[in-house]
Simulated scan of single mutants.
Amino acid sequence: MTMSVPAGELGTPYLRFDLDGLDRAYRAMRDALPEARVHYAMKCNPARPILARLRELGASFEIASAAELGELRAIGVPAAEVLFSNPVKVPAHVRQAWTAGVYRFAVDSDAELDKIASAAPGAAVYVRLATTAGGSAVPSEGKFGVGPGAAARLLRGARARGLRAYGITFHVGSQMTDPGAWADAIERCAAVMTGLRRTGIRLAMLDVGGGFPARYDSDVPDLRTYAKHIRTAIDRHVPYPVELVVEPGRALVAQAGVMVATVIGVARRGGARWAHLDVGAFNGFMEALETRTALRYPVCDSRDSPRRDSFHLTGPTCDSQDTVRYSVPLSADLAVGDRVYLQVAGAYTTAYASRFNGFDPPGLRFVCSAGAP
């Protein structure tokens, strides 16, 4: 039996990130879609060792701000390889990115076209198409995107403003478990491409976005299944060859991370057992709050006792919403000072973490487990 250690002496919480696990995830993506250029969505986890390893593996990157671009330039990523996919950008960020060498910018409005024409004259733009797909565990659509007619109009408007009508993109929603979700969006993109070709505009890029899932507490389809659906839709509908781009985030980093936490309190309330951890929704697991705990992280503990009991795992703050998971089977003798390991935690944990209520965000520790399953 593992002995308890007083809370505060373990240096928790921290995210233990396996860089070799990142290698495996990246290679799985490349093997599934070798014809696609991988642009990592760095918002998912912008830690510099992760960016550097992906750079070594041959990845490109997608950003939403000038600060993210600064991180990439610090490790030698050429700005020309970066996609600025945030459809609504800070004007000063557009100027900084353009000056640095970024030349491709996403848009979904006339105001954004005007902004780019002013701050980045002659730049290439790609329009964000709205999607109708549902079924993602972390819905992310609705804020951005336009219909096919508006997309075509914006790309024609880009040319009228002296910009290059470069491509079209979409996002089906984060943690999308339906591989068929891409098909409708690709067909709609193809219709825009066909219509534009009649007016003399030929696009160079089809960016099918991210949304590829990680395996949390249940199975998800293999990446090759997603690739088959994407490839079939392109072969069936896209009217001419274009550069294919994907923007994975979660699928590359989630399973490489384990959040190591310490139990700071145990209690029985209303017939339920609660384990209070030194990490919670506000300092690491905001997606638990976003999804009302529907995103279920696999969990185990340092005691690993054969006798089990059900626990609600909650965070250290005094906010009643600060809960990560409900009804998790853990060691029945779980006690203050024990460690709890929340797996598949490499995505959106340290990136989202705040100091709400004065609790520190998790640290980061990098390991290499070459050959590990």
Rank of each mutant, 00 (worst) to 15 (best):
A36M: 00
R153L: 12
A275V: 09
G147L: 01
M286F: 15
V172E: 03
R307Y: 11
A151K: 04
K43G: 03
Y326P: 02
R197Q: 14
I50L: 13
L113K: 07
A66S: 11
R273W: 11
G157H: 13
A106P: 04
L277G: 08
Y297W: 14
G145Q: 03
A64N: 12
V340L: 06
A119P: 03
I50E: 03
A372W: 14
L163T: 07
P213N: 05
R365F: 07
S136K: 05
T293Q: 14
A370L: 13
A151H: 05
A158W: 10
S369V: 13
A335P: 04
T291V: 10
E243T: 08
L252W: 01
R53L: 11
L72G: 11
S218Q: 15
S331W: 05
A347W: 06
T232Q: 10
G371M: 01
T317F: 06
R128A: 14
A133C: 06
T291G: 07
D219I: 07
D360I: 00
Y40R: 04
L203P: 04
L330D: 08
T132L: 10
A137P: 08
Y297D: 09
I264Y: 02
P148L: 03
Y240P: 12
T199V: 13
E290K: 15
V263S: 03
S140N: 11
I63D: 12
R53Q: 11
G371R: 01
E290S: 15
Y348A: 14
A67Q: 13
F17E: 01
C44G: 12
W274H: 15
G271C: 06
L113F: 09
V172S: 00
A47Q: 13
A92C: 11
G162M: 12
P148D: 02
V242A: 02
P306V: 02
A370M: 13
G145C: 05
V246I: 15
V242F: 01
T291I: 09
